[in-house]
Design a binder for these strands. Sequence first.
DNA 1: CTGAAAGCGCTTACAG
DNA 2: CTGAAAGCGCTTACAG
Lengths: 321, 321
Amino acid sequence: MATIRDIASAAGVSVTTVSRVLNDHPYVSEEKRTRVKKAMESLGYTRNIHAVHLSKGFSNMIGVVLPSINLPYFADLIAGIAVAAEASGIHLSLYQTDYQPEKEVFALSQLQERQVDGLIFCSKAISDEELLGTKGPILLCQHADTAGFSSISIPHQEAFRHGMNYLIEKGHEKIAICLARKKVMNSQVRIAAYKEALRDIGQPYREDWVVEKAITMLDGKALFHKWKKRRDKPTALFAANDQVSAGFYLEAKAHGARIPDDVAILSIDNHEISRLLGISTIDIQTKEMGKQAFRMLEKSISGQPPARKVLQYRLIERSTV
Amino acid sequence: MATIRDIASAAGVSVTTVSRVLNDHPYVSEEKRTRVKKAMESLGYTRNIHAVHLSKGFSNMIGVVLPSINLPYFADLIAGIAVAAEASGIHLSLYQTDYQPEKEVFALSQLQERQVDGLIFCSKAISDEELLGTKGPILLCQHADTAGFSSISIPHQEAFRHGMNYLIEKGHEKIAICLARKKVMNSQVRIAAYKEALRDIGQPYREDWVVEKAITMLDGKALFHKWKKRRDKPTALFAANDQVSAGFYLEAKAHGARIPDDVAILSIDNHEISRLLGISTIDIQTKEMGKQAFRMLEKSISGQPPARKVLQYRLIERSTV
DNA sequence: CTGAAAGCGCTTACAG
DNA sequence: CTGAAAGCGCTTACAG
């Protein structure tokens, strides 16, 4: 492998000059520039980026931490991040955690080691303190209790409450909800909003009406059968993601249930599937959040102080409520 | 930032010893090892990975080149790659190309610069020659005409032909097909299989029965309306992906069309949605291909010669044909 | 078990 | 416009 030293001697210039040519610096005579370019050409030179990184102290690469890119929400989020990163010439390194805290800690260590210039946490299992404990630019795509790092989020509690109110206005009092994972923060605030809404209309909180691990369409499908078997049926289902409501909806239709008469469906996401099926949902601008997340991280990297941003949600009425 | 030099002097040992501790080398006395660890602890030492990379000459990172991670097929593929990479302690860097050749060329340049130790092309727009022209381990998840780099693929032509035969056996002669992008190789071989099958049953090839840019569920939905308006209707639709057939199917159902009586539907992928809707499809083991792709690339990186692998497909009969 | 020293391949003040 | 030299922070024969 040819190095800039080889190029320098082949072109009869100093390594400094070669470096200048490489970095499009001005102050290189046309003549030397061409000589250097020719030498690079004939020796098949390619820069060793690791040396550049070591020398410069950064890598133009950021890390994206997420449970799995195989879930529509995260796929959207990362698509947004990717668009913005691309525009800035920054590359993405992926850290799939599968919700395991130690994987998140690992990503943090990569930041410490300067493998990446910054980290976007699309979701997290570790505590805010652990995030704070590591120096380096971090952005969280989720509500943060602590200051000290940047965050961007949707007011999930308000949004969920809004959805509940909407269902209540439409005459529902017996409402079941579906969440992905109870322990994660977004679920916690949704449960809080749920309880609050029930209290307001004087309905009891029923543990068995809070369904967990509802993630895929197949989960939604299974849910329909559980719903059907109940004696005391909820009249509305509020799902934390469109996949679940789509599965439920399709299975319900297949078994002759009337939506929304037999059971109303509302969900969160506004993915293509909800549009296609006409499912009412709450749009949470996931891709846009990804874009803005990147830009905020970029600012942190360039030394600006932590910031917080909250995006707006929007209830989209279709035909399932 | 503390360096190993700082640690060395704080612990009263040489940098060599510090490096040995860092890399879990044997041949370090317990006593020095503890002294070094203490020093690292108290100085808050974190290794600079760029120096390691420069020194070692590799980065334990591979690049994955794909049009967009936002498409189910690629999401599956990368999920498979990620699982296998994780198991080997290798990290993933993403290159989203949006089908632009120059983005692929860029990924190639990253390989040259040793940013990544190898590259997996999940799909490609550039020619085999361009791939061959760059040294370094490359794996293509697609049929390769040329030897010189590794590849893993599904026999798409055979699979498509198999699907055509299946439809024909079921009595269909008027078959329309849907593809994502005509220019890509997979589409080309599918069109070839399509023509061949038509020739065998003495049907003319009709350009207007080859639908392009069919990618999402919404595309499928729109397609149903186009189908409905035709006088001379195909009796079967063979779509290159489950999303399209799902959109078509759902819209057909919504408008009272009978499947498969009015129009049969077959697709390729075997994603969750096809299972949910009972759509007949051809399973192409996308995730498994991702896993194996990684392992093959790993072998190339460790110096083994290029290899080719072909995976099997499987037609899954459900209720739409 | 230990360390001095060379090397990985760039960038960047500094001096001219 | 140009170059000699120091520096980025590790790893790794080599010699002991």
